[in-house]
Design a protein around this nucleic acid. Structure first.
Lengths: 168, 168
DNA sequence: TGTGAAATATAACGCTA
DNA sequence: TAGCGTTATATTTCACA
């Protein structure tokens, strides 16, 4: 009798990712639109092998999904800011509830829960300076648990090098 | 998911996006792996229409690309931090050169150039606390123009609601 | 919007080192 | 065990009506 699931590359937390895996991840994290054929060709793999490895990376959870990147300016939100949020009370319920609310607020790109004097950093994109002011006053400081905010204009955001081994 | 796209800079900011466009963008920004068939079905569009509109959004530059999302912990970098970097000199050359260097540093996910007392916020992912210390000492404070850094541990990051109109 | 031809992805198989 | 090439099948894409 066969196992219900064929033995698969054991990829746990102690996953061993070889050089090819890193190349695949780097390529797909820069552009996930590439066809399997092109990807295989670029890395010198057989198409079947390439498809197999990419699928294994997905199933292992290393690749959690793919997302379309949007041009925020073209969407009418050319202004970005980081808003630091400091709480007055730090009960678990307060923190979690506020976190949920902030992350769900329109305009929030990412919400960081951090250690230190501040509790949250919000990366937001808005229409203009007025909208930024309104965002803070309407959606952030209105929460009673929020003691203080500090808004910093973002001139530019760049994607970093990431955690993958450099290409070789 | 598969489609080599000729990089075409197009249509101006005067592009008008209707409700369907917003729904498409929302869906694709959450999961770009959906097939055109499934996407069309979900929104009640003909497949050809759906494909056409998505393509138009790409050509208009609203969708700038798609990227695979990676599980940083499985890649061996379970620790994230925000590092605030303050410069001692703000000549254009200094700023740009440092920006380039920081964004290219392994471990940097995003580099924000911001207004205020600090000049850059670096969102980084590293192996452990030691690696975080080493990151700062080896890659940040070694730049002569860096006057001060402040490192804040990130407990958690969440994707926000984004700038798209809420679903209706 | 619908259709059909071409391209592509997927899964299964056997073979090799 | 991992990689490769092949096959057959299912699906998608894209240009055109």
């Amino acid at each position: 009798m066969r196992n219900p699931q064929p033995p698969r590359r054991a990829v746990g937390p102690a996953t061993t990712l070889d050089h090819v895996d890193h190349q695949l991840l780097r390529a797909l994290s820069e552009n996930a639109d590439v066809t399997n054929k092109a990807l295989a060709g670029r890395l010198g793999l057989a198409e079947s092998t390439c498809a197999y490895r990419v699928r294994a990376l997905r199933e292992a959870g290393v690749i959690t999904g793919t997302r379309a990147q949007l041009d925020l300016a073209l969407l009418g939100c050319p202004l970005q800011a980081i808003i630091m949020v400091r709480l007055g009370s730090h009960t678990m319920a307060n923190v979690n509830q506020l976190y949920d609310a902030l992350a769900a607020t329109p305009g929030v790109l990412q919400a960081f829960h951090v250690a230190g004097a501040d509790d949250f950093y919000l990366h937001v994109a808005v229409e203009n300076a007025e909208a930024l002011r309104d965002f803070v006053l309407q959606y952030v400081t209105t929460h009673r648990v929020v003691r203080q905010t500090e808004t910093h204009l973002v001139f530019e955001v760049r994607n970093g090098a990431g955690v993958l081994r450099s290409r070789t």
